[in-house]
Design a protein around this nucleic acid. Structure first.
Lengths: 119, 119
DNA sequence: TCAGTATATTCGAACCTTCGAATATACGCA
DNA sequence: TGCGTATATTCGAAGGTTCGAATATACTGA
């Protein structure tokens, strides 16, 4: 069961895929061309990310003529992202630090020693 | 912001780390030695996973004498796992397939073509 | 101080993910 | 049928993750 959950998390563990899921959550059904427009990324790349989401049944594809439309399969995952937003806000300052640390460092090792604990 | 969410998901995207988080959610504060007992994994390995969770501030370490005790920092992530359980049950059959596919195949490529869509 | 226990870190091999480039497939229309 | 558009797939390089083995650190009690 944990393996299953881990698979879902893995599928969500990429900014582009989160963006896709959020778009679908908010807009309902969206065609790939619209996704491409919003995301401003390479077509192949978006298609690859969609393939990941599809392979975990997180999204569903519907073909209509020339185009393919995607929807979330289960809104509960939208709720998961809502909780994450909540989490993000609750720890806003620190989250910024975390992100800054990830960006400025860029190639340095990120740390958080046990010394962080207050004894 | 998506990058931040992605980081959290990435941190949760491993069965062992999910197990740790669930243990902490259910038991409150737990020492590393107890974690080791429950998880039945190499000490180094568990320590590495704890380091990942720490680096994203998902768990907090408290040192007491010889031992280190861990807690979840924010129960909202426990809720996220609850939603996942819900999701898992809602799609039980298919989840089993997914897992079976992951195991028997083991090294084969996993698929889910657009043909899955019902036109 | 030394030995022992609890936990963390470092290292390197094996494996996985991500990306863009190139290519393939599928459909609609002339 | 052949062309153009929409989307998917394959490939290979670059980088990231995971694991156990070895080692380091920190604390306790004799």
């Amino acid at each position: 069961m944990r393996e299953f959950k881990a698979e879902i998390f893995k599928a969500l563990a990429h900014p582009t895929r989160i963006a896709i899921v959020e778009l679908l959550r908010d807009a309902g059904e969206v065609s790939v061309s619209v996704l491409l427009e919003r995301l401003e990324l390479e077509q192949a790349n978006v298609s690859q990310h969609l393939a990941v989401l599809r392979s975990k049944h997180i999204v569903v594809a519907r073909k209509d003529g020339n185009q393919v439309f995607y929807t979330m399969r289960d809104p509960v995952l939208g709720k998961v992202l809502d909780l994450m937003r909540q989490y993000f806000h609750a720890h806003l300052e620190e989250s910024k630090e975390l992100l800054k640390g990830m960006r400025t460092d860029e190639r340095r090792k990120k740390k958080a020693s046990v010394g962080d604990a207050k004894p």
